[in-house]
């Protein structure tokens, strides 16, 4: 059985990617399962979808625990522990990542020796801050499995996307083809993983649950506002960055327009954005009367910040 897992953010089309690949594999004569995995998270939050394909009817169910092929639509997700991107990855897992960072660097960062293929940046952009990469990543996956021909892939895209109109079909056909062609070097590199033998397995560590008193054993929380431990800042793909030179310190405007209430006031009277929790809605960017807040791609902002830090460190007297 082939086990394939797609990781992305809500809004990036991972469900669509799994359906496109699922349909393409099904049309290629395989038995298929595909499903998205939803949590309570919203647009921008980490999510995943998976596909199983086999020559036999598939009996396995639920999440793909150990993927043969792992596709990552957003390379910033590797830094998000709750995303669980690397969960169950073995030495045999093939990786494909939408990234401009080289595969060498990724192998070094992830401390793995697996094959990693890079997906090119797409020309297909559904909207500005959330490129929908579903068709491209599905095309790439199809090629890496070596089970789907170009023609069947395009048929699958046509079928699945038809409901969104001819314009969407055209864009997605193009994207799927782009993904498919980019993976020529890795065609068929994904290997089916073996079934778990029944006579050698890790014994489940079952325990006998004890009775806890209701104060503990009911779904109640006695902490106050501990939701701040959830770093919704990780949803962000764009970062609002204030230019204090332009800012007029009318903090009640950006401050009260932020739905999450993550814009406070610093000691100097300037708005202070809590990047741990800012979800990147960019309302403040639109609402700022002086246009003092700019929307910067998250990775760019992080890189710039690191450069500044390094420069400061260098400039410090030893």
């Amino acid at each position: 059985m082939y086990r394939i897992r797609f990781h992305g953010r809500g809004g990036q089309g991972m469900k669509t990617a799994s359906r496109l690949l699922g349909t393409a594999l099904f049309k290629s004569g395989l038995e298929v399962q595909d499903a998205p995995r939803y949590g309570a998270e919203r647009r921008g939050a980490a999510m995943f979808a998976y596909v199983r394909a086999d020559r036999q009817p598939i009996r396995e169910r639920g999440n793909v625990v150990s993927p043969d092929l792992l596709l990552v639509a957003d390379d910033t997700l590797f830094q998000v522990p709750v995303a669980g991107v690397m969960a169950g990855v073995t030495a045999e897992t093939v990786l494909a990542v939408a990234s401009t960072t080289s595969e060498m660097i990724w192998r070094d960062r992830l401390k793995i020796a697996n094959p990693i293929y890079l997906l090119p940046h797409s020309e297909v952009v559904a909207d500005d801050d959330f490129p929908d990469v579903s068709a491209k990543i599905a095309g790439a996956a199809a090629r890496l499995t070596g089970l789907v021909s170009e023609a069947v892939l395009l048929q699958a895209v046509e079928e699945e996307i038809a409901q969104f109109g001819p314009k969407a079909v055209k864009l997605n056909l193009h994207a799927a083809l782009e993904g498919f062609q980019a993976m020529a070097a890795g065609e068929g590199s994904v290997r089916e993983s073996a079934d778990l033998p029944a006579d050698s397995y890790e014994k489940p560590e079952w325990i006998d649950l004890d009775l806890d008193l209701a104060a503990t054993a009911a779904p109640n929380i006695h902490a106050a506002a501990n939701s701040v431990q959830v770093r919704t800042g990780l949803w962000r793909t764009l970062r609002p960055v204030l230019d204090p030179k332009i800012c007029g310190k009318c903090t009640w405007i950006c401050g009260s327009s932020c739905p999450d209430g993550v814009i406070g006031v610093d000691a100097g009277g300037y708005p202070e954005i809590d990047y741990d929790h800012c979800k990147g809605c960019m309302i403040c960017v639109v609402q700022c009367p002086r246009h003092a807040i700019a929307a910067i791609p998250e990775q760019e902002a992080v890189d710039a910040l690191e450069k500044t830090k390094t420069a400061q460190l260098k400039g410090m007297p030893s």
Partner: peptide, 20 residues
């Protein structure tokens, strides 16, 4: 508008959509 509270008692980190 400047009298509106500048810090908020509802904790951040909720699962509501961006821009809700």
């Amino acid at each position: 508008a400047r009298d509106l509270p500048s810090s908020h008692i509802l904790g951040a980190g909720t699962a509501m959509c961006a821009g809700c």
